[in-house]
Simulated scan of single mutants.
Amino acid sequence: MDRKTASGGNHTYIRRLLGIAILLVAGGIIYYLFSPGESSLFPRCPFHTFTGLDCPGCGSQRAVHHLLHLRIKDAFTSNPLLVIAIPYILICIYLEYFGGKEKYPRVRQWLYSKKAIYTVLLVIILFWIGRNLI
C-alpha cells in the first residue's frame, strides 16, 4: 500500500471517529438536559405501546439520563441490564476501535465467540421474560 492510500484511510478513520464523537456528545447533551420520561422528544417503545409489556430495552433512555446525572440506583431501576452491560460494551469498544484487538486477541476472540454471543442472547431473553413476570 502506498503512502497516499494509507494516509487517505487514516483521514477517513479520523473523520469517522470525530463524527461518532460529535454524535455521542450531542446525544449526551440532549439526554442530560431532557428527561425521556417527561419529554415527547424521545421515541416510545413500539413493543410496549402495542403489548403493554416491557422489552429488554425499555427504560434504557431513562437509564442513560440517570447515568449522566450520576444517579446509579435510578438507572439500575430503569433498566438493570443496560447498567450491568456497560463494562462489557466498553471492553468491546476498546477491543474493536482502540487497539485492544492487537494487544488482547484472546480476550476479543472469547468475547466475540459463538458461546459468548449465545450467552448474551440467553441473558437478554431471560431478562425480557423475568422483567414481565415480576
Rank of each mutant, 00 (worst) to 15 (best):
P87G: 11
D54Y: 09
T119D: 03
C58E: 12
L126Q: 03
P56Q: 09
L33T: 10
R44C: 05
Y94N: 03
V83L: 06
L122H: 02
S113K: 05
A63C: 08
W128I: 04
S39H: 05
D74T: 02
I29Y: 12
E102Q: 14
F47H: 04
R15G: 01
S39N: 15
N10V: 06
N79M: 09
F34N: 11
I93L: 15
P56H: 08
Y32F: 14
F42Q: 02
V120G: 00
L23M: 12
P87I: 13
Y88N: 02
L23R: 01
I117S: 12
T51F: 04
K73T: 14
G27Y: 02
I84G: 00
F76N: 07
A26C: 12
I29G: 07
F98S: 07
S78C: 02
G99A: 04
T51W: 04
R71F: 03
L33R: 10
I125T: 05
L95H: 00
K115C: 02
L53S: 11
V107T: 07
I117H: 05
F47K: 08
L133F: 11
E96A: 14
G52N: 11
W110P: 01
T49V: 09
H66F: 13
S39P: 02
L18Q: 09
A75T: 06
P80M: 07
C58P: 08
L41Y: 12
T49A: 14
E102F: 10
T49M: 12
G59A: 03
D2Y: 01
S7Q: 13
R106F: 10
G9N: 15
R15D: 10
G57V: 07
T5V: 14
S40I: 01
T119H: 00
T12F: 13
I93G: 06
Y97C: 04
L68Y: 00
G19I: 04
E96N: 14
L82F: 14
C58W: 07
L111A: 05
P43G: 12
L41T: 05
L23N: 07
L17E: 11
G100W: 00
C58Y: 06
R15V: 13
T49Q: 12
P80V: 01
A63N: 04
V107W: 06
T49D: 09
L53Q: 12
V25Y: 03
